[in-house]
Protein backbone atom coordinates (compact mmCIF):
# COMPACT_ATOMS: atom_id res chain seq x y z
CA UNK A 1 0.00 0.00 0.00
CA UNK A 2 2.67 2.50 1.04
CA UNK A 3 4.99 1.50 -1.76
CA UNK A 4 2.18 2.31 -4.17
CA UNK A 5 1.79 5.68 -2.51
CA UNK A 6 5.51 6.34 -2.86
CA UNK A 7 5.50 5.27 -6.47
CA UNK A 8 2.79 7.86 -7.14
CA UNK A 9 5.38 10.49 -6.35
CA UNK A 10 7.75 9.34 -9.04
CA UNK A 11 7.38 11.15 -12.38
CA UNK A 12 8.66 8.34 -14.66
CA UNK A 13 6.44 5.75 -12.95
CA UNK A 14 3.40 8.00 -13.15
CA UNK A 15 4.18 8.82 -16.76
CA UNK A 16 4.42 5.16 -17.66
CA UNK A 17 1.35 4.02 -15.74
CA UNK A 18 -0.79 6.90 -17.00
CA UNK A 19 0.17 5.92 -20.53
CA UNK A 20 -1.03 2.38 -19.88
CA UNK A 21 -4.27 3.59 -18.30
CA UNK A 22 -4.95 5.97 -21.16
CA UNK A 23 -4.43 3.17 -23.66
CA UNK A 24 -7.70 1.58 -22.64
CA UNK A 25 -9.48 4.46 -20.90
CA UNK A 26 -9.38 6.75 -23.92
CA UNK A 27 -11.23 4.33 -26.25
CA UNK A 28 -13.72 3.53 -23.48
CA UNK A 29 -14.37 7.22 -22.95
CA UNK A 30 -14.88 7.88 -26.64
CA UNK A 31 -17.22 4.90 -26.87
CA UNK A 32 -19.23 6.03 -23.84
CA UNK A 33 -19.46 9.57 -25.19
CA UNK A 34 -20.53 8.37 -28.62
CA UNK A 35 -23.15 5.94 -27.27
CA UNK A 36 -24.44 8.44 -24.71
CA UNK A 37 -24.63 11.27 -27.23
CA UNK A 38 -26.37 9.24 -29.93
CA UNK A 39 -28.75 7.67 -27.42
CA UNK A 40 -29.54 10.96 -25.76
CA UNK A 41 -29.74 13.14 -28.83
CA UNK A 42 -31.48 10.74 -31.21
CA UNK A 43 -33.25 7.93 -29.40
CA UNK A 44 -34.36 9.31 -26.04
CA UNK A 45 -37.99 10.48 -26.15
CA UNK A 46 -38.65 14.20 -26.55
CA UNK A 47 -39.90 16.09 -23.51
CA UNK A 48 -43.61 16.79 -23.81
CA UNK A 49 -43.26 20.36 -22.58
CA UNK A 50 -39.81 21.41 -23.82
CA UNK A 51 -39.70 19.35 -26.99
CA UNK A 52 -36.25 18.63 -28.29
CA UNK A 53 -34.51 21.58 -26.63
CA UNK A 54 -34.29 19.63 -23.36
CA UNK A 55 -31.64 17.44 -24.99
CA UNK A 56 -29.03 20.00 -23.94
CA UNK A 57 -29.37 18.30 -20.55
CA UNK A 58 -27.13 15.52 -21.87
CA UNK A 59 -24.24 17.98 -22.05
CA UNK A 60 -25.26 20.47 -19.42
CA UNK A 61 -25.83 18.24 -16.40
CA UNK A 62 -22.73 16.03 -16.86
CA UNK A 63 -20.54 19.11 -17.34
CA UNK A 64 -21.92 20.75 -14.19
CA UNK A 65 -21.60 17.61 -12.06
CA UNK A 66 -18.03 16.93 -13.11
CA UNK A 67 -17.03 20.60 -12.86
CA UNK A 68 -18.06 20.60 -9.21
CA UNK A 69 -16.39 17.26 -8.51
CA UNK A 70 -13.24 18.57 -10.20
CA UNK A 71 -12.86 21.24 -7.56
CA UNK A 72 -12.76 18.61 -4.85
CA UNK A 73 -10.22 16.58 -6.82
CA UNK A 74 -8.12 19.74 -7.09
CA UNK A 75 -8.44 20.55 -3.39
CA UNK A 76 -7.60 16.96 -2.42
CA UNK A 77 -4.52 17.07 -4.61
CA UNK A 78 -3.66 20.40 -2.99
CA UNK A 79 -3.99 18.93 0.50
CA UNK A 80 -1.80 15.97 -0.45
CA UNK A 81 0.82 18.30 -1.87
CA UNK A 82 0.78 20.48 1.27
CA UNK A 83 0.97 17.57 3.70
CA UNK A 84 3.34 15.18 1.95
CA UNK A 85 5.06 17.71 -0.34
CA UNK A 86 4.44 15.37 -3.25
CA UNK A 87 5.40 16.93 -6.56
CA UNK A 88 2.99 14.84 -8.58
CA UNK A 89 0.10 16.11 -6.45
CA UNK A 90 1.12 19.63 -7.52
CA UNK A 91 0.98 18.48 -11.10
CA UNK A 92 -2.49 17.02 -10.57
CA UNK A 93 -3.74 20.19 -8.90
CA UNK A 94 -2.27 22.37 -11.59
CA UNK A 95 -3.89 20.20 -14.27
CA UNK A 96 -7.31 20.12 -12.61
CA UNK A 97 -7.78 23.89 -12.66
CA UNK A 98 -7.98 24.56 -16.42
CA UNK A 99 -10.04 21.42 -17.05
CA UNK A 100 -12.45 22.34 -14.28
CA UNK A 101 -12.68 25.91 -15.52
CA UNK A 102 -13.41 24.68 -19.04
CA UNK A 103 -16.15 22.33 -17.79
CA UNK A 104 -17.68 25.09 -15.67
CA UNK A 105 -17.64 27.37 -18.67
CA UNK A 106 -19.27 24.65 -20.77
CA UNK A 107 -21.94 24.20 -18.10
CA UNK A 108 -22.66 27.94 -18.03
CA UNK A 109 -22.67 28.21 -21.82
CA UNK A 110 -24.91 25.20 -22.36
CA UNK A 111 -27.15 26.52 -19.58
CA UNK A 112 -27.46 29.85 -21.37
CA UNK A 113 -28.24 28.14 -24.68
CA UNK A 114 -30.82 25.99 -22.91
CA UNK A 115 -32.25 28.98 -21.06
CA UNK A 116 -33.13 30.84 -24.24
CA UNK A 117 -35.84 28.43 -25.46
CA UNK A 118 -37.03 27.35 -21.99
CA UNK A 119 -36.91 30.50 -19.90
CA UNK A 120 -37.00 32.97 -22.80
CA UNK A 121 -33.73 34.58 -21.77
CA UNK A 122 -30.03 33.78 -22.00
CA UNK A 123 -29.29 34.47 -18.39
CA UNK A 124 -31.25 34.28 -15.17
CA UNK A 125 -29.81 34.90 -11.74
CA UNK A 126 -30.93 31.50 -10.62
CA UNK A 127 -29.28 29.99 -7.54
CA UNK A 128 -27.51 27.24 -9.44
CA UNK A 129 -26.40 29.52 -12.27
CA UNK A 130 -24.96 31.98 -9.77
CA UNK A 131 -23.18 29.23 -7.84
CA UNK A 132 -21.64 27.91 -11.05
CA UNK A 133 -20.47 31.41 -11.92
CA UNK A 134 -18.81 31.68 -8.50
CA UNK A 135 -17.22 28.26 -9.05
CA UNK A 136 -15.86 29.51 -12.38
CA UNK A 137 -14.20 32.42 -10.61
CA UNK A 138 -12.75 30.08 -7.98
CA UNK A 139 -11.10 28.05 -10.75
CA UNK A 140 -9.87 31.17 -12.55
CA UNK A 141 -8.50 32.45 -9.24
CA UNK A 142 -6.41 29.31 -8.77
CA UNK A 143 -5.10 29.49 -12.35
CA UNK A 144 -4.20 33.18 -12.06
CA UNK A 145 -2.52 32.73 -8.69
CA UNK A 146 -0.45 29.89 -10.11
CA UNK A 147 0.60 31.98 -13.09
CA UNK A 148 1.45 34.99 -10.92
CA UNK A 149 4.26 33.22 -9.05
CA UNK A 150 7.67 32.82 -10.67
CA UNK A 151 8.66 30.15 -8.17
CA UNK A 152 6.83 26.94 -9.04
CA UNK A 153 7.02 25.40 -5.56
CA UNK A 154 5.59 28.52 -3.95
CA UNK A 155 2.90 28.69 -6.64
CA UNK A 156 1.79 25.16 -5.92
CA UNK A 157 1.68 25.72 -2.16
CA UNK A 158 -0.22 29.00 -2.52
CA UNK A 159 -2.76 27.38 -4.84
CA UNK A 160 -3.14 24.47 -2.45
CA UNK A 161 -3.96 26.86 0.40
CA UNK A 162 -6.38 28.76 -1.82
CA UNK A 163 -8.18 25.64 -2.98
CA UNK A 164 -8.48 24.40 0.60
CA UNK A 165 -9.96 27.73 1.66
CA UNK A 166 -12.34 27.27 -1.27
CA UNK A 167 -13.34 23.81 -0.05
CA UNK A 168 -14.42 25.22 3.29
CA UNK A 169 -16.24 28.02 1.53
CA UNK A 170 -18.05 26.21 -1.28
CA UNK A 171 -20.82 24.75 0.92
CA UNK A 172 -21.28 28.15 2.61
CA UNK A 173 -21.44 29.91 -0.76
CA UNK A 174 -23.92 27.36 -2.12
CA UNK A 175 -26.20 27.52 0.90
CA UNK A 176 -26.20 31.30 1.00
CA UNK A 177 -26.87 31.61 -2.72
CA UNK A 178 -29.78 29.16 -2.30
CA UNK A 179 -31.12 31.26 0.54
CA UNK A 180 -30.66 34.47 -1.45
CA UNK A 181 -32.46 33.00 -4.44
CA UNK A 182 -35.45 31.77 -2.48
CA UNK A 183 -35.73 35.21 -0.92
CA UNK A 184 -35.39 37.30 -4.07
CA UNK A 185 -36.86 35.38 -6.96
CA UNK A 186 -40.39 34.18 -7.41
CA UNK A 187 -40.44 30.42 -7.84
CA UNK A 188 -42.05 30.73 -11.24
CA UNK A 189 -39.45 28.77 -13.13
CA UNK A 190 -39.81 25.07 -12.79
CA UNK A 191 -38.08 22.62 -14.97
CA UNK A 192 -37.96 18.90 -14.85
CA UNK A 193 -36.09 17.66 -11.84
CA UNK A 194 -33.68 14.81 -12.38
CA UNK A 195 -35.56 12.59 -9.96
CA UNK A 196 -38.85 13.00 -11.86
CA UNK A 197 -37.28 12.01 -15.15
CA UNK A 198 -38.49 9.04 -17.06
CA UNK A 199 -36.03 6.17 -17.12
CA UNK A 200 -35.72 6.43 -20.92
CA UNK A 201 -34.21 9.88 -20.40
CA UNK A 202 -32.41 9.09 -17.18
CA UNK A 203 -30.40 6.16 -18.54
CA UNK A 204 -28.61 8.12 -21.31
CA UNK A 205 -28.09 10.97 -18.85
CA UNK A 206 -26.39 8.70 -16.33
CA UNK A 207 -24.33 7.23 -19.15
CA UNK A 208 -23.24 10.71 -20.19
CA UNK A 209 -22.31 11.57 -16.59
CA UNK A 210 -20.10 8.47 -16.43
CA UNK A 211 -18.66 9.40 -19.83
CA UNK A 212 -17.86 12.91 -18.61
CA UNK A 213 -16.15 11.54 -15.52
CA UNK A 214 -14.01 9.34 -17.76
CA UNK A 215 -13.36 12.32 -20.01
CA UNK A 216 -12.25 14.31 -16.98
CA UNK A 217 -9.84 11.55 -15.92
CA UNK A 218 -8.48 11.26 -19.46
CA UNK A 219 -7.95 15.01 -19.80
CA UNK A 220 -6.40 15.13 -16.37
CA UNK A 221 -3.94 12.34 -17.19
CA UNK A 222 -3.10 13.87 -20.58
CA UNK A 223 -2.58 17.29 -19.05
CA UNK A 224 -0.49 15.78 -16.25
CA UNK A 225 1.69 13.93 -18.75
CA UNK A 226 2.35 17.16 -20.60
CA UNK A 227 3.09 18.95 -17.36
CA UNK A 228 5.44 16.15 -16.20
CA UNK A 229 7.37 16.32 -19.47
CA UNK A 230 7.62 20.11 -19.19
CA UNK A 231 8.90 19.98 -15.62
CA UNK A 232 11.22 17.03 -16.05
CA UNK A 233 12.45 18.18 -19.45
CA UNK A 234 16.09 18.22 -18.40
CA UNK A 235 16.17 14.79 -16.77
CA UNK A 236 17.71 11.69 -18.20
CA UNK A 237 14.55 9.62 -18.55
CA UNK A 238 12.66 12.29 -20.49
CA UNK A 239 15.56 12.72 -22.93
CA UNK A 240 15.74 8.99 -23.40
CA UNK A 241 11.99 8.89 -23.95
CA UNK A 242 12.14 11.64 -26.52
CA UNK A 243 15.14 10.10 -28.30
CA UNK A 244 13.37 6.73 -28.43
CA UNK A 245 10.26 8.39 -29.77
CA UNK A 246 12.36 10.18 -32.37
CA UNK A 247 13.99 6.87 -33.41
CA UNK A 248 10.63 5.16 -33.66
CA UNK A 249 9.41 8.01 -35.80
CA UNK A 250 12.46 7.86 -38.03
CA UNK A 251 11.96 4.13 -38.55
Amino acid sequence: MWSFFHKLGSPPWLYAISGKILQWLLPVTLLLLAVGAVWGLLYAPADFRQGNSYRIIFVHVPASVVALAGYYVMATAGAISLIWKMKMADVAMRSCAPIGAALTFLALLSGAVWGKPTWGTWWIWDARVTSMLVLFFLYVGVISLYEAFDNEVAAARACAVLSLVGTVNIPIIYKSVDWWYSLHQPASIKFTEESSMHSDMLAPLLLMIVAFYCLFICSLLLYMRGEILRREGTTHWVRKLLLDAGDAHAV
Partner: peptide
Protein backbone atom coordinates in the same frame (compact mmCIF):
# COMPACT_ATOMS: atom_id res chain seq x y z
CA UNK B 1 -6.24 42.91 -9.31
CA UNK B 2 -5.35 39.36 -8.42
CA UNK B 3 -6.49 39.70 -4.82
CA UNK B 4 -9.92 40.87 -6.02
CA UNK B 5 -10.22 37.82 -8.22
CA UNK B 6 -9.15 35.50 -5.41
CA UNK B 7 -11.22 36.99 -2.64
CA UNK B 8 -14.46 38.37 -4.06
CA UNK B 9 -15.98 34.88 -4.57
CA UNK B 10 -15.46 34.26 -0.86
CA UNK B 11 -17.19 37.55 -0.04
CA UNK B 12 -20.43 36.38 -1.67
CA UNK B 13 -22.04 34.85 1.47
CA UNK B 14 -21.20 37.88 3.61
CA UNK B 15 -22.70 40.23 1.02
CA UNK B 16 -25.86 38.13 0.75
CA UNK B 17 -26.52 38.00 4.46
Amino acid sequence: LLISLLIIPFYVPVLIF
